[in-house]
């Protein structure tokens, strides 16, 4: 019996020793650095969460405490969720994000296929132009687009909210790189078998592009869900307001209700957090593929 009892601590000890065996100074330092980095990343979220429970007066208290002295959480969240049409805002965000994504995919996939696999005069110039367009920030084009939308009387419509993002140069470039490695012989076999070019894209390329498209979708969705800049410019009415934009309503010249703003921020972030938990792999792939941090 004693023989049977003694081994467990020994095993436990061995495990502990094994765990500490790799523990070099370098590893300890690395872990500490990573831990600090993680804290730095998480802190704004913690602060947001904490502030969303506080009354405005307490948000800017010198000594930071996670749990508020006066609990205003219920009031803040009630104001955000009930006193305004919050579901409407969420729906608007969803419509805009899905609309943008759909058109981006529809335009980017054929364009990328053409740039990657078709031989035509000027294809290199086209590709160069596409890459050059990557460097143009939206702030440059927003004024002419805004003026155009005003002239057409399209301000404050879903169309106006989506329009500048319909063609994603980044998506074209990403998919082109992806298609470039697709074997030519399969495409040629398809041509011999009688596929039309459109059918090659739909039946062969599209199934192959699913991983890249998923990654890009996550990227695009997050980017436009969080976008504040463009909705702020073109949205005028409550009915078209996106969830992110709705946070701005608590600001007025005389009074800024920071507690409520933070509560709204928490709720706006929540859907993306949930998506992240479920589609973490696609998120990570999207970010590594794009090389841009969302």
């Amino acid at each position: 019996m004693t023989d049977m009892i003694i081994p467990p601590p020994a095993v436990g000890l061995r495990r502990l020793r094994a765990a500490f065996k790799d523990l070099t100074l370098g590893r300890v330092c690395l872990t500490i650095v990573l831990l600090l980095g993680a804290c730095l990343m998480v802190f704004p979220f913690v602060w947001m969460l904490s502030s969303s429970l506080k009354p405005t007066s307490e948000v800017f208290d010198a000594d930071f405490r996670f749990w508020p002295r006066t609990f205003a959480g219920v009031q803040n969240y009630y104001d955000v969720l009930v006193t305004q049409p919050y579901l409407r805002y969420l729906l608007n965000s969803l419509i805009v994000c899905c609309g943008i994504l759909a058109v981006q995919l529809i335009t980017a996939v054929p364009a990328a296929y053409a740039l990657a696999k078709l031989k035509f005069r000027g294809s290199t110039i086209f590709l160069g132009t596409v890459i050059a367009c990557l460097t143009v920030p939206i702030n440059v084009t927003s004024i002419p687009i805004y003026l155009g939308l005003v002239k057409m009387g399209l301000l404050d419509t879903y169309f106006s909210m989506m329009f500048p993002f319909f063609v994603s140069v980044f998506a074209i470039f990403l998919f082109r790189q992806f298609f470039h490695s697709y074997p030519d012989s399969i495409i040629e076999a398809a041509r011999v078998d009688g596929f039309t070019e459109i059918e090659i894209v739909l039946r062969l390329i599209l199934p192959a592009v699913v991983p890249a498209a998923a990654a890009f979708s996550v990227f695009s969705f997050v980017a436009h869900w969080n976008d504040l800049y463009w909705p702020l410019i073109v949205v005028q009415s409550q009915e078209k307001m996106t969830a992110t934009l709705s946070m701005m309503q608590y600001r007025s010249t005389f009074d800024i209700n920071y507690g409520r703003t933070f509560a709204a921020a928490t709720i706006v972030t929540l859907p993306m957090m949930l998506v992240f938990l479920f589609a973490r792999r696609a998120f990570v792939r999207g970010i590594t593929m794009s090389g841009i941090k969302g």
């Binding site: 074997p183 012989s185 399969i186 040629e188 076999a189 398809a190 011999v192 078998d193 009688g194 596929f195 059918e199 039946r203 062969l204 199934p207 192959a208």
Partner: peptide
């Protein structure tokens, strides 16, 4: 009919679908 060096089968289709493709088209 053209048979390629790397076979060029449609990777996401079953063997039956692969073989049916020229006829379907």
């Amino acid at each position: 009919a053209l048979v390629f060096q790397d076979y060029a089968l449609y990777p996401h289709m079953s063997v039956a679908q692969n073989m049916a493709m020229p006829l379907v088209m």
